[in-house]
Design a protein around this nucleic acid. Structure first.
Lengths: 165, 165
DNA sequence: TACTCGTTGTTCAAATTCGAACTCAACTGT
DNA sequence: ACAGTTGAGTTCGAATTTGAACAACGAGTA
């Protein structure tokens, strides 16, 4: 590689805005979810994924990749959610190793109670701030970026690689 | 508020791409920085901010807000970096409470060694994936989003609110 | 059947993060 | 000078995350 090509002003602006927005957004979502539903953002995400899955259940590894978390991290969170009664574990008869995380009715109820406020916040702080053009550009551009990262690199397992739906 | 307005397909696409990209990107940067320079992404960010500041030093709180971390989190990280000799603390004579974190020559050297590879990766995985239009839309849209979040909410202190340069 | 791989989910210790409480100073108004 | 308030940075315990190591299986092959 030749000389390092530093970022120009607009590139810096984009990169900083991207990182800053994510940090702030995450902070707000965490606050709101914790306050309104006693959930961390990650926990919400887990419940949300489960709610959208067939039979409201997913295997640990699938779920881990869906929420882009490490296996051990998911084990921990599912443990928490299980204690709270929002999720339960189920074993698979065809594969003894497999464990399904299932959304309980109570978990579903909590999710349904939390979702409207969460979505409203996503709208307020993110979606509705963007013009339709910006929204599309963002979906296209970042969609491509994440796709490329997923397509390459089947090596690292810290977080199980997998496309999100 | 009326009925919750759920996200339509494109909105979901944008939101998911945004979150997914950030997670993957962060993972890659962390990996690379750890491998090449023994730094976490956050530590790199800290060094980078310091390197761009007058006299290569910033007050703890300023730095915390610049890298969008909590005060206690920064205290911890500066402790680590100080042990590694990349940063040192300096007291201010005019204000006893104030503490400056200063980038050492060694810290600067480490940063200079890490920066090219880091920037190259940012380009490869983010900047260069986007079209010029997308880049501008992203800078504008997300810039606006983060600005709004910073402008509101002077209440929460978990992370000291402040615009980044 | 025995053997070798690659997977699955968990465990464990160490590293990090979180947030509230705390310590001192600086500032404000008196 | 004097209380009351605010701000800076640290401390501390609890919660979470990390990554490597592990145990227990499937699956493919000889």
């Amino acid at each position: 590689m030749g000389l390092p090509r530093w970022l120009n002003e607009e590139e810096k602006r984009a990169w900083n805005a991207f990182r800053s927005t994510h940090a702030l957004l995450n902070q707000r979502m965490d606050q709101q979810l914790k306050r309104d539903a006693g959930l961390s953002h990650l926990q919400y995400e887990i419940l949300a994924r489960l709610s959208g899955a067939p039979d409201r259940e997913l295997r640990m590894t699938e779920l881990a990749s869906a929420v882009q978390n490490s296996k051990s991290g998911l084990t921990y969170q599912i443990g928490q959610l299980e204690q709270a009664g929002l999720v339960r574990r189920r074993n698979c008869q065809s594969d003894v190793r497999a464990v399904y995380a299932c959304l309980t009715d109570e978990g579903m109820a909590v999710l349904e109670r939390a979702a409207p406020g969460h979505v409203a916040l996503v709208r307020e702080l993110f979606i509705d701030v963007l013009t339709p053009d910006q929204l599309r550009a963002l979906a296209d551009g970042l969609g491509e970026a994440s796709r490329r990262m997923l397509d390459s690199d089947f090596t690292a397992d810290p977080r199980t690689a997998n496309p999100d739906t």
